[in-house]
Design a protein around this nucleic acid. Structure first.
Lengths: 221, 221
DNA sequence: ACAAAAGTGTTGTTACTACACCCATGG
DNA sequence: CCATGGGTGTAGTAACAACACTTTTGT
């Protein structure tokens, strides 16, 4: 069959975002193998036998962060002939959003390091990964404005201020507190839990939760 | 190299739209080879040696319609394990928009027929092509609202009524003539040519052109 | 009582919607 | 002079943006 004469590798790459300490961050791994030894890149690799690219992305996400059941969407496919110096590899890029708490990053023998990088201070990336990351940031920003994907960046219960902070960090602009809260509550995507944060030296904030932790299309912001 | 043991075929499929005689239409081909003999599908196929999926989509578009330099965007990649009964094939779907005038459809020996199908009266499609087409229609509708891609469906010079008709047909709803014209002219994407349509038994319409025949992001409608 | 973040309304401005008649041409 | 689509303005409504003070808690 013609297909089997093509000799094209099929890979999945995962752009994994989180918001932590006031910054939007992407998970990058440091490569061992030449010609990109020492360079940073998004985690990824050739898909395994009888595995879809989405399953590969889920596997990569699980390996690096331990999380699953977070928001994961197909971003775009990259297949320039020269994008991988080791041979022709088509890569389907996925974007994942993970909440910042309780994530222990794991490395493995293919990588010399793994860590979160602020998207404002990125190193030069291997392959075409700078382009992929740029596309991912744009997609994240626009999707934030007309969907509820932010649920995937937050713990199950959160305050409206935390929610607003995530919007402000990702969109990189200030939002008016009163207008933001009015809009969010009008949308009906969140509900109060009745609980309050305790133990801080100021008025305790009400805790909210998302009614649905799955993709919903609305004009959020 | 591991890649070469994967045995995954890489294909490109092209969802080709036009607007003609008051309907949004997709170009479909009728298949010869089993197990889909007689069934309709989007034109596509395995990519050739040293060809990107985008180049393959351009080639397919050229073969079927003779056109090039139209709007063509990557839609999504489909790689379910069972999507092709003849073996594992990953397909990158592209969406193209072609103007309706002067297009002569060409068939070839792989297909028994080619023709435009109104998206309101589609046959059952081969593979996962019904899903791909559904995604393409959604993408087209939303992109119509915040970009100028409609230029690719129109001849170089057109009237505002023709433009409005295309919006109405694709969005499948009526638009107010005065509001539509005000919005379009405010956006500044089109310019008058100074010419008028002649020879019709009613007041001649002014002809406009797009200032830029490439993707521009604005809230069009 | 102080520090710190939580929470809450109103007003002006802008964008959107709905709507009906006259105009220019060919036949 | 008739038929046909081309072309134009206004008023009411809804959404958005800008803005500052009071409340609740822990120390």
């Amino acid at each position: 069959m013609t297909a089997f004469n093509q000799r094209i590798g099929v890979a999945a790459d995962a752009v994994i975002f989180t918001v932590d300490h006031g910054e939007l961050k992407a998970l990058l791994i440091q490569m061992k193998k030449t010609p990109f030894s020492g360079r940073w890149a998004m985690p990824g690799g050739l898909i395994e036998n009888k595995e879809t690219t989405r399953q590969a992305a889920e596997r990569i996400l699980k390996i690096q962060t331990g999380v699953k059941d977070v928001y994961l969407e197909q971003l775009q496919t990259f297949d320039d002939l020269k994008r991988d110096p080791n041979g022709r590899v088509l890569s389907v890029a996925y974007m994942a959003l993970v909440p910042s708490g309780n994530i222990k990053l794991k490395t493995n023998d293919r990588y010399s390091d793994v860590r979160w990088w602020s998207i404002k201070k990125l190193p030069t990336l291997a392959y075409d990964h700078s382009e992929i990351l740029k596309i991912a940031i744009n997609r994240l920003r626009s999707k934030l404005e007309y969907t509820n994907i932010v649920w995937s960046l937050l713990p199950p219960e959160f305050t409206l201020t935390q929610l607003q902070n995530i919007y402000e960090i990702i969109l990189d602009r200030d939002l008016d507190k009163r207008n933001f809260r009015r809009k969010i509550l009008e949308l009906g995507l969140v509900a109060t839990t009745g609980k309050k944060i305790k133990g801080e030296a100021y008025r305790p904030a009400e805790l909210y939760r998302f009614k649905q932790r799955r993709l919903t299309y609305v004009e959020v912001i």
